[in-house]
Design a protein around this nucleic acid. Structure first.
Lengths: 221, 221, 221, 221
DNA sequence: GATGAATGAGTGTTCATTCAT
DNA sequence: GATGAATGAACACTCATTCAT
């Protein structure tokens, strides 16, 4: 389940158009991390550039050396998170023996990432009116990977051959999104903190649901 | 799959605190409909009270006779749409012979409503930072209905008895949400208009997926 | 220390221009009392017609049957309070044997009224920008009475003959105003309620101060 | 009659929280001066931030770099005027030979300041509902100085030893306030302009009144 | 590279007043 | 006499963006 690298991993200064120096690269990273925190906490609209620059320990004007606009950093952030979540999922699926197991591990990776980066959820669910193109990009890149994996597994006979992999991919992604929202983001432990890992019982339940949905007819555990 | 009626279907004037006159009730409805359109088109933040009142053909100040704030009409709208989508789903499921069929019909009703009221999607996905409580209410009310239906069906042996109905309910709701987003809201016909009905092939694909996920072991079509 | 009665004690409906019926008169009174409370509590600007009508148990529109505007009721209230405070002062001074005693009793009456009607203070001190003419009227009417009393006493040799009674009148009025503010309106008892009567020690202190300022040379207690 | 300097004469930017640059300090001062004019002319409520910033030749948003709110600049202004009027009074009293003379000079300084800064009056008399705490601060700071001066004079035997200096201080302050209102703010010369100095006859009359009230028994001019 | 003062368009909300019933 | 729905001007405040230093 490989994903082609993005065109240019080299960040350019918006003002000079040239590749960033090492120092510049660090500032840009700090801004992006600050944005992740601030967007996750306040949402796109209540987040402000001042808050982002404050959290990044950078002056207000510096922001515009690295990003053209508030929307630009939002898009950069979504793309960044998207790469990273897909990377997490691939890593998690690495040692899987079959697609059914891969699914479980992939979702585990997804939930792991979600717990560590709630911005992914919060930000994406707001993206519809901020940057619809980026929103689609995000979902489509994940679904693409999914579909590819499912199609390959279908070739291998690991999953039902009458399954529409495209539809299944969207359905699974939606299922993962709401399960994550419900059992990670909404959940609070005794101390009122969100859990860092998905409840194993939930992961089991979800995996069973998925396994049943994908498995070829006549094959049971 | 019954849902208990909300406590008080009587709208109160925010200013007098008394039940609305017929004229008042009509104005309130106009505002709510205008808000649905404006929120769906522009999103919560770019929507403005002026835009809503203009679309409702009402003066600006009139707004505040019926709603306490922008957030208040947002919440009222979510609750209103929630009631109506659940009603649509119930209606659609009415004649189903078994749960599997009910699921298909229910989703059909859901998609029908989504196509007619895109605000449901757009507005809900923004609700996280506008009114988290309302967001949860929305999902939980739907999931509650779902879970009840699934549990009953499980009793009847119509669906797998080892299924965790709670988790399944969230998974199905998420699947429906993304499928609707992808195949209704993002889809455009030749004229560039979004379709009014879900593509039957997609509904088939999704139903097959669900059927497989729910059906008791050993039972095939 | 007589004050000529105001021209017309007959209230007219602002809408018909005719004298009010008994019922109308009562409503007008209720509005005026409500206004006294609301203005005293919130000040002119934060007071609203709605709040006044609510407190008067009258519908919003009714207000405009009795007063032309918010400013109009404000002015009516100041004039009303002014008549009443002057009446209180005259009553209090009735049995005085000389002017020095009259002063003490007059101030006592003034403080009594102030404690019962804090609106007098609060409203007057805001009147500068609301209705300067009414503000002057208020002070001048009181000062007129004062001056007349002082002048008469001067004739009698009860107070120093080299005293400028006009200036003394303004000075005494100012003294009374701030003493009232400091020791009545700002004071709070153990339960946090403002006192209903001036602290006798303060009245003594103030009377001594005034006595010294007014008394003819060579005359001591 | 010394007054301890306020803790920190360093203005802080409300936005960075750091001490202001020279340029910033100038802008802040311009805003404060504009506010003095606008509040004096229109009163607190009819003054608007736009009007203040226009008069200060500064953009609207700039206001909020220096003050948190309309109320905040109002309070800053009262405090500022308070310091300055007390300074004027101290200066004026500097060369006085005794307390009686000091009183006359102090009031002269007070009236001088009042004529040049009518905002002091107008703004303070509105402060009750805008910022009661600041209102008290203003009066108490002046009264504190007064009381200290009177108490010292009492020690010296310059004023009557049976005088309650606290009460006398409030009485004198009130007298000064109303005399200033009546003979400075309400007075108009032939050209309709308010006088720049108090009528000497009034100052004489007032001083005589005060002298009599303060002087020890048996001491005449 | 970095700074932070300055800008001004935009928006939610209030409230005195009117008028049809 | 009384009601209360409707009106719309006015205003405090926010914040993305620019630019001189």
């Amino acid at each position: 389940m490989t994903t082609p690298a993005d065109s240019a991993p080299v960040s350019l200064s918006t003002v000079t158009g040239r590749p960033l120096t090492k120092r510049g690269e660090a500032t840009r990273r700090r801004l992006l991390e600050a944005a992740e925190d601030v967007f996750a906490e306040l949402g796109y609209h209540d987040a402000s550039i001042v808050k982002i620059t404050e959290r990044a320990h950078v002056a207000l004007g510096t922001f515009y050396l690295y990003f053209d606009s508030k929307q630009a950093i939002f898009e950069a952030l979504v793309i960044d998170l998207n790469s990273r979540v897909r990377h997490s999922m691939s890593e998690a699926m690495a040692g899987a023996r079959d697609r059914i197991e891969a699914e479980r591990l992939g979702f585990e990776g997804f939930f792991e990432f979600t717990a560590a980066h709630p911005a992914l959820y919060r930000v994406v669910r707001e993206a519809e009116f901020v940057s619809p193109a980026t929103l689609r990009l995000h979902y489509e890149r994940i679904v693409d990977g999914y579909r590819a994996g499912l199609a390959a597994a279908q070739q291998q006979g690991e999953i039902a051959d009458d399954l529409d992999v495209e539809i299944a991919a969207w359905a699974l992604m939606g299922a993962g999104e709401l399960i994550g929202m419900r059992y990670l983001l909404w959940e609070r432990d005794a101390a009122g903190r969100p859990p860092q890992h998905i409840d194993p019982a939930v992961l089991d339940g979800m995996s069973a649901f998925i396994a049943r949905a994908l498995r070829p007819a006549g094959k049971e555990d």
